[in-house]
Write a protein that binds this DNA or RNA. Sequence first.
DNA 1: CGCTATCTTGACACCTGTCAACCGCAGTGG
DNA 2: CCACTGCGGTTGACAGGTGTCAAGATAGCG
Lengths: 201, 201
Amino acid sequence: VRFKKGAEIYREGDSAGAVFNIITGVVKAYTQGPGRDELIGAFLFREDLFGLAQEGRYVSSTKAITPVTAYRIPVASLRNQFSMDAALEFHVIAKLCHELRQAQRHAFVLASKRTTSKLTLFLQMLEHLQAARDEPTNEVYLPMDRSDIAQYVGTSLAAISRAFRTLTVRGILKIREHRHVKIVDRCTFEALTHHRPPSRN
Amino acid sequence: VRFKKGAEIYREGDSAGAVFNIITGVVKAYTQGPGRDELIGAFLFREDLFGLAQEGRYVSSTKAITPVTAYRIPVASLRNQFSMDAALEFHVIAKLCHELRQAQRHAFVLASKRTTSKLTLFLQMLEHLQAARDEPTNEVYLPMDRSDIAQYVGTSLAAISRAFRTLTVRGILKIREHRHVKIVDRCTFEALTHHRPPSRN
DNA sequence: CGCTATCTTGACACCTGTCAACCGCAGTGG
DNA sequence: CCACTGCGGTTGACAGGTGTCAAGATAGCG
């Protein structure tokens, strides 16, 4: 199946009829709760599997943030393959573990106190993921907009913008068209990862 | 096996020889990275299963925060049971899903901006878990110290203390011996859950 | 009965959220 | 070809919250 940019794939609480496997494009998984603010739980890329359900209901909403093509796999056919192929089950376990690891890294990003750290960690994540998909690694591409980043790392849109600014003026990053980021000063970049006491400057 | 309060059960990166199943007590799972600050990823209670490994290495350190008794299950014997009992595998999947859900809630706590919200959400989590273990629910018991709470919800120790203070003076909580919390004004308590704009007061 | 670990509280600078205005760009319609 | 509008992004102003540091209070434990 195919989704346009911005299309909702399913909504939290919908009855879960299928799981999806991304071929192309990027998807965000988010939940809004309980205030009015929504938290983005994960970004999903090529080869990622999603559509996990709890008691027949999806646990988060998903939306395409770029044009997306994906396999849509009805649960029925999934059950079939399950009983026939034990290795598949193992594959699912592996996916779950991967997702858990990812959630761990996400938690780390959220737990950072300064926005620059959050952003740095976030860029590192993207870089790793990009490398894992063997795409060029000389610069990081951001498929999502600033607002999405903010909701993922747990700050306001403005803070993200400011963080980008401070990192660029310090000569650590270079930004092209708002979506291509090049890490110039890798050394201090990684240093930001550590929680930097407010060293007066 | 049995652990004293404060005992390390294993450390991140150790070669994983066994998984554990808690009978009594509370365990914290944490990772320190990459700064000097450690983030507590989860608290583990009775019946919880932990010791998940990635490539033969534990992915987080664990420490008993109360006296703990637990089953220690060597991986070898686990493999045995795996091949004999397919239902067990399913049980493990269920545990993983549960853990993922829990991570999701954790992320939500971390993403909250004001400390009072974090604390409120945290208390709600504990309350739910406590109810799920059918323990008395009229007040919440905190097995961990303030510092642990701070590291779990992603703020400083001082902020937690202050948050407790503000909630008590507002007549929302009552604290006994620093570790027993009673929710007095349930209504405004839940209201704090929603991201409260800095409503002048 | 001291001693240590834990918790509270104060002071202060800094960061961050909120609000709002502004910019640049793309698409639209005149 | 050019205004107009909408969207995403940046920036400024300001207040309030939070981190850090450090001192003081409390409780737990030997």
